[in-house]
Design a protein around this nucleic acid. Sequence first.
DNA 1: CTCCGTTGCTAAATCGGGTTAGCGCCCGAT
DNA 2: ATCGGGCGCTAACCCGATTTAGCAACGGAG
Lengths: 352, 352
Amino acid sequence: MSRRRVTLADVAKAAGVSRTTASLVLSGRGRELRISQDVEQRVMRAADELQYRPNIVSVGLRTGITRTIGFVSDTIATSRLAGDMIKGALEAARERGVMLFIGETEGDAELERLLLQAMHDRQVDGLIFASMFTRTIKVPKGITAVPSVLLNALPKQPTPLPAVLPDEVEAGRTAARVLLDAGHRDGIYLIGTGPGMRDVTSGSVAAVERLTGIREVLREAGVKLAGGRVCPDWQPEYGLAATRDLLRTARPRALICFNDRVALGAYQALDDFGLKVPSDVSVVSFDDHPIAAWMRPKLTTVALPHYELGRKAVEVLFTEIGREHDPDRRGEVHRVAMTLQNRESVASAPAT
Amino acid sequence: MSRRRVTLADVAKAAGVSRTTASLVLSGRGRELRISQDVEQRVMRAADELQYRPNIVSVGLRTGITRTIGFVSDTIATSRLAGDMIKGALEAARERGVMLFIGETEGDAELERLLLQAMHDRQVDGLIFASMFTRTIKVPKGITAVPSVLLNALPKQPTPLPAVLPDEVEAGRTAARVLLDAGHRDGIYLIGTGPGMRDVTSGSVAAVERLTGIREVLREAGVKLAGGRVCPDWQPEYGLAATRDLLRTARPRALICFNDRVALGAYQALDDFGLKVPSDVSVVSFDDHPIAAWMRPKLTTVALPHYELGRKAVEVLFTEIGREHDPDRRGEVHRVAMTLQNRESVASAPAT
DNA sequence: CTCCGTTGCTAAATCGGGTTAGCGCCCGAT
DNA sequence: ATCGGGCGCTAACCCGATTTAGCAACGGAG
């Protein structure tokens, strides 16, 4: 029943030539090696009729190229982030005829070691080392045995590995500009991180960079931040608590929330205090999590480009594979733009 | 610089034996084939010292077993669902020393064909064919060339493929019981699907099965559904619209929403009408989407067991691989339990 | 007529393992 | 001394491709 796979030998026999010739023709090297038109046609026809497909496992053994890359992440399930990032990587990989191995380390160094080993055993052509939220990571040694790219992560120690990251500083600028453009100059508060450069949620690269961009734009416009609240974690309950705390002593006109989950909590706190978004308080946020479009009013937010990050990582990986033996390649950092999702949570400041 | 991989030949040479002997020892067949203790020790030591790892590509070519399975889904990014399902599959696979290829078809038949071909070319040991929401699918022919399992999907035509699905009927029963246990007997409405067996969101297996379970339990308790509203899609805006429409003519005591996104919309509508959850209206839902825990009050919902579904699929796939040549294997349907997440959105009915 | 250079194709080695068939040696029995 | 048989190991082939080295046939030059 189970028809055996068609092999190169079958094609060669059908075309009445040797395996060598068939291989040459099918790999497109027939021309330069002076294979006759007639033979070329016969091989092509035979391959076509038999529906020949080269066995990639075999090719992998012979050439060492498996048309396979590994996508290793700390965790893929926690945030929806992962989905789109993998989707982007998947599509970019498919365009190149390459498949993706997926692996999760759960942040466990031993699992990571095992996983990288398993990938090496399968002779992957390259590795994408991804983090689900932007942070600095310790680059596992041995990873350099194969071309690699860091995704959403920065190396703790300097390495020759390239990295792909969202442009968080510019995102901070964008968020600040949205408020300025709407005429806000007073009563702007931060929820999640800030107002000072030292008031940062620990371990969060995004916090530092977003804050940097926000402060830069406001400073240039001569606008002073009215205040801010740090959240230990950017979850709705902390956003709720921080905003409540703020509202007990202040009457903000605009909130910059450090992500959409925090913004969800902020909405709830504003509702508790009888404040309407955006007429009483404008809110702008980051990430463009699915809930942003479900909230009422719909949340204006600067989107994380998950899909593009995934794509870009694959693209960078392929140029890396191309220049594998280039001695002066070194870890460039690629920034992917974060674009504004302009929705309903920002209103003009009342004229003074 | 790039130290070549250690091969079996290196180990054999270091141990002073032939490749055959080394292979025999390392595959554990040394004992039965009367290899001496001394030689066995030497091989083991050599392998250990050289940190030998068999090249899986090579083994794949020789034995046809690649320790690799393919996970093909229609789309992995749309819902967060995918993440946990893949996570479950990933862990079950890792326990068996197997890696996962991920692929997305986007519901495109041509992409699907190409993807399955790419998987075959890589000699996967098995395939998981997943859908991101429960539905019936046309099983691609040619899929049976390799052991396969349907995940979250039922075949349109009868096939010998096993399927793994959430136990939606029992979930419907659970949701209904939650309300009955809280003393609700009147004013129970459905949002999303129902109240009749013909009022079903088209193409949704979950709708039919959940409704079946709900109606069964209520009927047995002698309770009549007060009504229901069908949503063309289970999104917040439709939930909002349907609930608003309902509230214009009725005063429900309890709502069974067909998923959490619909419930989010329902919350918003109830809020618009000044009704409090759960004191005025109890709400129970399905899925346990992340927002369920973020809503206020936190949503009581019957959870989709994504993680378990992924695990189960791999388990079933492996028994399938085991009985590959068993003539009387046929597509069993495995149901995975959906468990109640009891939170804050259901209150006791007022005593009559 | 011999020699040389093309032309057009193929034999054989190779990748790194698994697997089958069988070889040499030692021991005891005849 | 010869034979048979178990023991312990290995040579050689195989998986399905790529790649190197080289062979046969032919035509033109010397």
